[in-house]
Amino acid sequence: MSVSDTPSRSAAEYGLPDDEIVAEIPVYLTQKLDKQLHLLQYPQKDGSITPGELQPREARIKPIHGQIELDIPLDVQSPMYNKERGAALGVGISDSGRLLDITTLVSVGIPQNSEYLAGVMRDGELHLTAIKKAIQLRPSLRYLDRVAEKDLAAKKMDHSDEEEEVKKETKAQSVQVTVRSAQAEEALRQQQSSIAYMQQKLEEEPWSGLAYFDVGTEESNAVHADLIADNKEDLISKTTPDEYLTAVIGSIVPDVL
């Protein structure tokens, strides 16, 4: 942050506690990328992510629902990698005897309880772009479901009678009696129908390939340039500070005098 060449002012001029103001930074807002920016969180990562660390082998998106998947390669040559276990789990991603050599990160929407902004400092100016979408990327374990499905199919071929008996026992154990009001039954039915409908629509939407460019690439730098505002006209406020606070947090008059 650069220090302004203009004479410093007292904080009292701004209605702040007495303290020296060492810099005044112009703030500009830009909307060039506000519909494209996503904030990706990696809850399983500690600390910062270095360039190239999470370079995916493949990336894809469902544009309508905004779901993203990244296939992150695993180092199968690492002495810490269990190739025997990797081969056993590899049937969950391929029938060709391939090792489990990727981990798939899938996006999960999170409640946006606060507003996020992407900020860039350039020439002593702060340029801000609103971020409309915040998601977390968590490992997908779908390959385990596929392994289980294949194991079950193999067992059915070898033990069809035994499997049928297990199904009967499971069906008998899963029966339970519940009593609900007609209103509760209808509410539950509508909820289940709505969830099933949304899940069906999500699964029906095809994936679209994404081109991934890491930090420092020409493509990344070109997009980064769009975070800088072109229009630097001053915004004229049409509200007083009290009116703005009232619009944001409600009445600013204390309840108890």
Results as ranks from 00 to 15, higher is better:
132 K>G: 09
132 K>T: 05
134 A>I: 10
136 Q>M: 09
136 Q>H: 07
136 Q>T: 14
137 L>W: 00
137 L>M: 04
137 L>T: 00
137 L>K: 00
138 R>C: 02
139 P>C: 03
140 S>I: 10
141 L>M: 09
142 R>Y: 05
142 R>S: 12
143 Y>H: 15
143 Y>N: 15
143 Y>M: 12
143 Y>V: 12
144 L>A: 13
144 L>Y: 04
144 L>S: 10
144 L>W: 02
144 L>K: 01
145 D>G: 11
146 R>V: 11
146 R>Y: 05
146 R>H: 13
147 V>T: 11
148 A>F: 07
148 A>V: 13
149 E>G: 08
150 K>G: 00
151 D>A: 14
151 D>S: 14
152 L>N: 09
153 A>W: 01
154 A>I: 06
154 A>T: 14
155 K>V: 13
155 K>N: 12
155 K>H: 11
155 K>R: 15
157 M>Q: 15
158 D>H: 07
158 D>E: 03
159 H>Y: 05
159 H>T: 08
159 H>Q: 15
159 H>F: 13
160 S>D: 08
160 S>W: 09
160 S>V: 10
161 D>W: 07
162 E>F: 06
162 E>N: 07
162 E>S: 15
163 E>P: 06
163 E>Q: 14
163 E>S: 14
163 E>A: 14
163 E>W: 12
164 E>P: 10
165 E>H: 05
166 V>Y: 00
167 K>E: 01
167 K>G: 08
168 K>W: 03
169 E>K: 15
169 E>T: 14
170 T>A: 13
171 K>I: 02
171 K>T: 05
172 A>K: 15
172 A>N: 15
173 Q>V: 06
173 Q>C: 08
173 Q>G: 15
173 Q>S: 11
174 S>A: 10
176 Q>E: 03
177 V>S: 07
177 V>R: 12
177 V>L: 08
178 T>S: 11
179 V>T: 11
180 R>A: 12
181 S>A: 03
181 S>D: 08
182 A>W: 00
183 Q>H: 02
183 Q>D: 09
183 Q>R: 13
183 Q>I: 02
184 A>G: 07
184 A>N: 08
186 E>D: 07
186 E>K: 15
186 E>I: 05
186 E>L: 12
187 A>G: 01
188 L>I: 06
189 R>Y: 00
189 R>Q: 04
190 Q>H: 10
191 Q>S: 07
191 Q>W: 02
192 Q>I: 03
192 Q>A: 06
192 Q>K: 12
192 Q>T: 03
192 Q>L: 04
194 S>G: 01
195 I>F: 00
195 I>P: 00
196 A>C: 04
196 A>Q: 12
196 A>R: 13
197 Y>K: 07
198 M>E: 04
198 M>C: 03
